[in-house]
Design a protein around this nucleic acid. Structure first.
Length: 268
DNA sequence: CCCGGAACCTGAAGGC
DNA sequence: TGCCTTCAGGTTCCGG
């Protein structure tokens, strides 16, 4: 699942290949992949545009274009962007000059694209970027204050913090020794500080490992990332806690599988 | 505003 | 072997 480290890796590895290149055509194998504007306008407004910059906000990829428009891509659960032809799950192709292509692969068809005049119309509700300076333990504390929802759900809420999903929420909560069902507002200052540090540590390490290929995440050259080999609890069904050896538990939180150590992350 | 659950989607995996 | 059910989860929508 592409979360912040995966999207960041895709951005970094795509950039040197496509910045400065001009879009010459768009192929859509399923028009539902375009959320905005109407699909008839999408291609014509993109053709002739040159990609000047690639950014990331949360899990959104932002392709800046010469006209000032932004092509926004969200890979959702199973999307990936390839510089080489993938397989039958290609849902769209962005053709560039010099015979380059960006293939949008997405088995489950959740991924979407927008072409907008102002990228903020898509990303303005997102919470802070966890790896930027504006994100502080104090800000995390304020975001969690008086919230009764499980901390796991709040970490995955893009309006609270941008970019964290199921995998890295589990990893951060394990490092911080916090039970996923704890109400957000019940965390003590020391716990918030631990959680803050854990979030930054987990995301930074995963970026260094080029993301986690637990399911359908691939890098633009088709390679996998290796961050999942460092996972302590996430997706480790049936395995034991790497710290104390207790069998890991899996419980649903907001209908999402959540892995944790019942001994290292006690309920109270 | 806050919270929780359903819906979207389809391949993979497991049960019988 | 093959059919059927369940699981996976980011985001959005909806009801309370």
């Amino acid at each position: 699942m592409p979360e912040l480290p995966e999207v960041e890796t895709i951005k970094n590895e795509l950039a040197p290949h496509i910045i400065g290149h001009t879009i010459t055509g768009i192929t859509l194998f399923d028009e539902r992949i375009v959320r905005q504007p109407p699909v008839e306008e999408f291609g014509s407004r993109l053709i002739g545009e040159t990609i000047t910059e690639i950014g990331r906000r949360g899990k959104y990829l932002l392709f800046s274009l010469t006209s000032g428009q932004t092509l926004v891509i969200h890979l959702k659960m199973t999307g990936s962007l390839w510089l080489i032809p993938p397989d039958r799950f290609t849902r769209a192709v962005i053709h560039l000059d010099g015979d380059k292509k960006i293939y949008f692969r997405d088995p489950r068809k959740f991924g979407v694209m927008w072409l907008v005049e102002d990228k903020n119309t898509v990303t303005d509700k997102l919470g802070p970027e966890p790896l930027e300076e504006g994100f502080t333990a104090k800000r995390l504390s304020k975001a969690l204050a008086r919230r009764t929802a499980p901390i796991k759900a709040l970490l995955c809420d893009q309006n609270v913090i941008a970019g964290i999903g199921n995998m890295y929420a589990d990893e951060a909560l394990f490092l911080a020794k916090i039970h996923p069902m704890r109400p957000g507002g019940s965390l003590k200052p020391a716990e918030i500080k631990r959680l803050y540090n854990a979030i930054r540590q987990v995301l930074t390490a995963a970026i260094n490992d080029k993301g986690a290929s637990v399911d359908t995440y691939f890098r633009p050259d088709g390679q996998i990332g290796t961050a999942h080999f460092q996972f302590r609890v996430a997706h480790r069904r049936g395995q034991s806690c790497p710290v104390c050896g207790t069998p890991l538990q899996r419980i649903p939180v907001r209908n999402r599988g959540s892995y944790f150590c019942p001994k290292c992350q006690p309920e109270v």
